[in-house]
């Protein structure tokens, strides 16, 4: 399937996942149309990260279907899903700590390159050309998130905010059609969060659909086209930010957290 030109629709139907008797996802259904920013919110333990993990093939689901443009992908391995054009970042940052920032992003180019062990070991001409392209493209992605002057540092030495940006650059380097961001604003200060909002808009302008799990309500209400609200592994609401703000079920789910809606 050629993902280069066609936009990618993500359909999730009746998705179920349980861990040793605990149901983390109880028959979840939703869809993501191309070219939008969709936020998934919900209290802690609602199953948001599990949802990302099941979509990207970290765990197989116990039931239900996930489809990209009608092709079912549930149970596919993580690496296969990456090749189909879905990339992601992680809630608990998973940068490659002992590699440089640039090398991290170069790993993102892995699926867009093909040199095998013989041609790399002997540094054949084709491999060198490919290696140059990998490096240039990785630099461009670093510049896109604003980390170009950090290229030679070890990823483990970056502050958390920059590690999160590095994960975005690394994910973008795979040339995804859909980008899943798991709490990109977690641990960021206000200024960094504003930068992130701008970055997400620029990602959208590249024709990449963005799905994000996020706790920062200001950010979510500000940038999302659609919001889905989850609680206890189920969808309790879905719609435009305005509709979500006034949904009684959502207010109830968040009651314990005393969200201040005045500044939404």
């Amino acid at each position: 399937m050629n993902t280069e030109s066609s936009p990618l629709f993500l359909h999730v139907e009746n998705l179920q996942k349980s861990f040793g008797g605990v149901q983390a996802l109880k028959g979840l259904s939703f869809k993501v149309s191309p070219g939008i920013i969709k936020a998934i919110i919900g209290p802690n333990g609602a199953g948001k990260t599990t949802l990302f993990n099941v979509i990207t093939g970290v765990f197989p689901p116990n039931g239900g279907a996930i489809a990209l443009n009608g092709m079912s992908i549930e149970g596919c391995k993580a690496r296969e899903i990456a090749r189909l054009g879905v990339s992601r970042t992680f809630q608990n940052v998973e940068v490659f700590g002992r590699m440089t920032v640039l090398e991290n992003v170069m790993v993102g180019r892995h699926i867009q390159s093909r040199a095998g062990i013989i041609s790399t070991g002997l540094r054949l001409v084709g491999m060198r050309r490919e290696e140059r392209q990998i490096r240039e493209s990785a630099m461009q992605h670093l510049a896109f998130v604003g980390l170009e002057n950090r290229a030679t540092e070890l990823a483990a030495n970056l502050p958390l905010g920059e590690q999160k940006l590095l994960e975005v650059a690394r994910a973008l380097a795979t040339d995804p059609k859909i980008l899943l961001l798991d709490e990109p604003a977690g641990g960021l200060n206000t200024r960094e969060t504003e930068g992130l909002a701008a970055l997400i808009h620029r990602i959208l302008e590249q024709g990449i659909t963005v799905v994000l799990v996020e706790h920062d309500m200001n950010l979510v209400m500000d940038i999302s086209d659609e919001i889905m609200v989850m609680n206890f592994g189920e969808k309790i609401a879905e719609g435009k930010p305005k509709q979500i703000k006034n949904d009684p079920l959502v207010i109830e789910a968040y009651l314990g957290e005393e969200v201040d809606y005045s500044d939404l």
Binding site: V58, A82, R98, M99, V107, R109, I134
Partner: peptide
């Protein structure tokens, strides 16, 4: 090379390496 980077990436985080394909 891309192979060396793949090896080192799976050493640091197999989860992320898998997600990068």
């Amino acid at each position: 090379s891309r192979i060396g980077r793949a090896l080192r990436s799976l050493h640091d985080s197999e989860l992320a390496a898998d997600a990068m394909g």
